[in-house]
Design a protein around this nucleic acid. Structure first.
Length: 938
DNA sequence: GACCTCACG
DNA sequence: GACGTACGTGAGGTCG
């Protein structure tokens, strides 16, 4: 029902100027100019205040000017031409307007080529059509054209100036201009506007303009009867400048039929979550509003109970973030189109260009994008308006002919300008895959949005981010399962063999759903304050990681084969000895059988484990037995290590070598790890052995191309450094600044000595802190009693009180909000933080303590990665290739002779990754090494 | 597919 | 005092 809906449209751009001129040059906590931001924030606060009052907003948006250049400049090149540049201390405040708006969880809308006034006009038109009341928060006279008293049965449109609480309606307009809103444009055209450089007619000001329009009824009527005007000067001016008057009329005309950047319904106000607002007010140091928000003393003139301000109450109502409520949609697959001729293709491309955005999905014959061949491309421009362009389909079998389709080269040639057009946003789901497919075709797709990453940045920890799962979650819609088209197992066919009708339904649906997900998620990126992490950290990695995956890394197959052979011989020898020691053969790899052998047949004593009632045979147990002199346990440990290395690394890695590139191409997942880390799969190159001597040999198999070396650069102790900064521990921060051995220093603080034993103990304690400590856990690790473990932790907290405070505050925040944030704003959700099961809850608490630290570390290296290719190119080091990321390490292939230069750039980029967003209290040390293989680069 | 084990940061 | 025995991953094995 439209009944009762009331949309508030805030003219943000004009507000900021007024606030700037009205308020003294205040500065915020960081010493930056913030007077205008303060005034703007106060205005939003006032509006938020009216949220629950009669006639208050049910929907709201802030509208901003996106760009200087608009269609009005096309019409008249002098438009706004002599407007002076904004004052120097206002410029840095512009971006903060968006930050402030997001802090209130109010959508912020801007659109290239349109002025804020036009966007407002479009929303007013749409809202009126929907039967909604509208209030424009502005005092711009141009916007007065939109005022409507609803006399003709439609909803009313009025304006509000929060600076003097003035409501402007039709009567106000008539008093001001002498005419109704419908003729305001005509008056303005005659008057002109010196600020916007709208010419108007010389010698005509507001009074004369208004008088002329009242007399003649319209601008055209005034111009038509110009000859008969008595005053000679006025008559001559009207005749001489009639064209200027007509041009001015067009300039003041508001566009009201453009597409809405965000649908009306998405502007619904669902209350204002206090958490982001609090963070913003704190950051800016706006203390009065902060104290009002947190329930402190109300500002003068306000009663804490009487006001409509519900922000404090909202903080009580805050519940841990939950998955979104599904919104019903209708997917009509019969509307999808199969594009097999040029005319149709051109039409789709035109539509995408006009709209300025398009959802894109590729279908291929293989899950590995490095070798996959394109089968087809789907596009979507609006819900249910999607198409599939087959380009690589063949017949279902050798006997059948390939279906009719456009040549791949032609389609790619036509799509290239669209996909590279900076004015058209390309939206994908897991776009890295598609980005690589197009990169292979010589198309550098940009700009992009990725709905998988958007979902991850909004709701990590709440659910997965695959398209099928999100379709179900957001729209209660079941996508066609891939299996249904291609089958499974042996009878599975590749996508290029799927008949076009079926392929179209499946592929176009993917693009369609992607577009709808984008419409739903995009506004939340800003309103839930994950813009920085999305735009500056995660989204840039689509292309960066796409390039890394395409490059792959070279491995020495012969060397691996040699290792495999050595390992199998040793494994065979071990097996014989194990059978001897165990009095007969059994399946060593079966923990169940091994348990029976050790604790049954050999009669050793040990503990049961878990629900399955099975003996535990993990390293800890076997080490214990081996320490007690059980030879069989020692042998099994060796056997396990070698079979692991052989199966997981030496054998598997050889099989992973891409026959075309002769290199190994891992796939990095951008949404795999809840904390924001990357993960690597097929093969996982983030867990190549290094800790043991035998395992380390596998690193030597990773080599550089002839004429190159492998370079490794890793952050030293990054998580401890971040913990020192985030928990604000002076001794730890100083130790890092001094380049001291942090574990020895901790040992000195805790035990008064840093001999080897104490240093090791301190090291364990340091890690325990990062992982969310428990006295039991620490005691278990150190092999000491619970009480002793507790004593050490107490001592740690006593020496480093900031750590205890950090843990308490992090947990409190997580309990209140259901998530934690990194220094860059990345959210990780912990639905179990309030679980009634103490074990679940404790697990969530440990993870919540760790997530901001691990996640900030992940943010940092991602920021470094996003900047790396550009920094290398700028230093004329295009030959240096970033190949791998292993959480705190980056691996490069570097032309021989360029090592020192490359090391410098890499060290600089990694070391300054926090800047300019953050200033860390600890240095980020980067250790760089190189050699002919990975093993030698450390 | 669940479970165990183990490779990495 | 119970809870469980550190955070985050991916992969290969056995077993049902």
């Amino acid at each position: 029902m439209a009944d009762g809906n009331h949309l508030y449209l805030v003219d943000g751009s004009s507000y900021i100027f007024r606030a700037y001129h009205r308020l003294p040059p205040l500065t915020n906590r960081h010493g930056q100019p913030a007077g205008a931001v303060y005034g703007y924030t106060a205005m939003l606060w006032k509006l938020a205040d009216s949220l629950h009052k009669a006639d208050g907003p049910t929907h709201m948006a802030v509208i901003l000017d996106a760009s200087e250049h608009t269609f009005r400049n096309e019409m008249y090149d002098q438009y706004k031409a002599q407007r002076p540049p904004p004052p120097e201390d206002l410029v840095p405040q512009f971006p903060l307007i968006r930050t402030a708006t997001r802090a209130f969880s109010i959508p912020c809308i801007e659109e290239k080529g349109l002025e804020a006034d036009d966007i407002i006009a479009c929303y007013v038109t749409a809202a009126k059509a929907a039967g909604w009341k509208v209030t424009i928060v502005s005092s711009d006279k141009d916007l007065m054209q939109l005022i409507d008293d609803g006399a003709e049965g439609g909803p009313a449109v009025d304006m509000l100036d929060t600076m003097n609480d003035r409501r402007m309606d039709r009567a106000y307009v008539e008093a001001k201009f002498g005419v109704g809103p419908e003729l305001v444009g005509d008056v303005l055209a005659l008057m002109g506007d010196s600020v916007d450089n709208v010419p108007g007619v010389p010698g005509i000001g507001p009074k004369t303009a208004s008088k002329l329009i009242i007399e003649h009824g319209s601008l055209e009527a005034v111009l038509a009867s110009a000859e008969s005007i008595k005053q000679p000067k006025l008559r001559q001016n009207l005749i001489d400048h009639a064209d200027n008057a007509r041009l001015s009329r067009k300039l003041v005309e508001l566009v009201c039929d453009a597409n809405l950047p965000e649908p009306l319904e998405d502007l619904a106000l669902k209350g204002i979550p206090p958490e982001p607002l609090k963070a913003f007010l704190e950051d800016q140091g706006f203390k009065t509003m902060l104290s009002r928000l947190t329930g402190g003393a109300p500002a003068a003139g306000r009663s804490s109970s009487g006001g409509g301000l519900d922000l404090a109450a909202a903080s009580i109502a805050t519940k841990p973030a939950a998955p979104p409520e599904p919104k019903a949609i209708t997917v009509d697959r019969s509307k999808y189109e199969t594009v097999t001729d040029e005319v149709a293709l051109d039409r789709w491309i035109d539509d995408a260009r006009t709209l300025g955005l398009v959802a894109v999905d590729t279908e291929t014959d293989c899950i590995d994008c490095v070798i996959a061949r394109l089968a087809g491309i789907s596009l979507a421009v609006a819900p249910n308006r999607a198409c599939y362009i087959p380009v690589g389909h063949s017949g279902a079998d050798l006997l059948s002919e390939a279906p009719d389709q456009l040549p791949m080269a032609l389609v790619l040639e036509k799509l290239k300008p669209l996909f590279e057009d900076p004015a058209v946003l390309k939206i994908g789901h897991n776009f890295k895959y598609d980005w690589v497919m197009f990169d292979k075709a010589g198309i550098d797709v940009a700009p992009v949005d990725d709905t998988m990453i958007m979902s991850f940045d909004l709701e990590a920890g709440l659910h997965g981010h695959g398209m099928d799962e999100l379709a179900k979650l957001h729209f209660d819609h079941e996508c066609i399962p891939f299996k249904q088209l291609c089958g499974t197992g042996k009878s599975q066919i590749t996508f290029d063999k799927v008949p076009l009708e079926d392929a179209t339904e499946y592929a176009a649906e993917d693009a369609d759903i992607t577009l709808r997900l984008w419409q739903r998620l995009k506004p939340r990126i800003a309103s839930e304050t994950v813009t920085r992490v999305y735009e500056r950290v995660d989204r840039p990695l689509v292309a960066t990681i796409g390039r890394m995956e395409r490059r792959g890394i070279k491995v020495d197959r012969d060397y691996l084969a040699g290792l495999s052979k050595d390992f199998s011989e040793e494994i065979a020898r071990l097996e014989e000895r194990i059978y001897m020691a165990a009095c007969g053969p059994f399946t060593i790899g079966s923990p169940q059988q091994l348990g029976e052998v050790l604790y049954g047949r050999l009669g050793l004593k040990g503990g049961r484990k878990g629900k399955s009632g099975q003996y535990s045979t993990d390293v800890n147990e076997l080490e214990r037995l081996a320490g007690e002199g059980v030879e069989c346990a020692r042998l099994v440990l060796d056997w396990r290590q070698l079979t692991k290395l052989k199966n997981t690394y030496t054998d598997a890695l050889q099989a992973q070598i891409n026959p075309e590139t002769r290199r190994v191409h891992t796939s990095f997942s951008l949404s795999g790890a809840q904390t924001g880390r990357l993960s690597s799969n097929e093969p996982n190159l983030q867990n190549i052995p290094i800790r043991t001597e035998v395992g380390r040999k596998i690193r030597d198999a990773f080599v550089a191309e002839p004429g190159n070396v492998l370079m490794s650069a890793d952050y030293s102790q990054i998580e401890l450094r971040l913990a020192a900064h985030m928990a604000d521990v002076p001794q730890l921060k100083q130790a890092f600044r001094d380049g001291a051995d942090i574990h020895s220093m901790t040992a000195e603080e805790l035990f008064g000595s840093s001999d080897r034993d104490n240093r090791n103990k301190a090291k364990t304690v340091n890690f325990a802190i990062l992982y969310g400590i428990s006295s039991w856990g620490l005691a278990g690790r150190l092999g000491i009693g619970r009480d002793e473990g507790k004593a050490i932790i107490d001592r740690y907290f006593e020496r480093f009180p900031g750590i205890r405070l950090y843990i308490e505050q992090t947990l409190q925040f997580a309990r209140e909000n259901g998530f934690t944030r990194t220094l860059f704003g990345r959210k990780t959700h912990f639905p179990n933080i309030r679980a009634s099961n103490p074990s679940f809850r404790a697990g969530a608490e440990r993870a919540a303590v760790n997530a901001p630290i691990q996640g900030t570390s992940a943010d940092l290296i991602k920021r470094a990665m996003a900047r790396m290719d550009g920094a290398l190119a700028a230093a004329d080091l295009d030959g240096v290739k970033m190949l791998l990321q292993v959480h705190d390490e980056l691996v490069f292939e570097v032309p021989e002779g360029r090592e020192e230069e490359a090391a410098k750039v890499v060290r600089d980029v990694m070391g300054s990754a926090a800047e300019p967003s953050l200033k860390l209290d600890v240095p980020l040390d980067v250790e760089v090494g190189w050699g002919e293989h990975w093993g030698a680069a450390h």
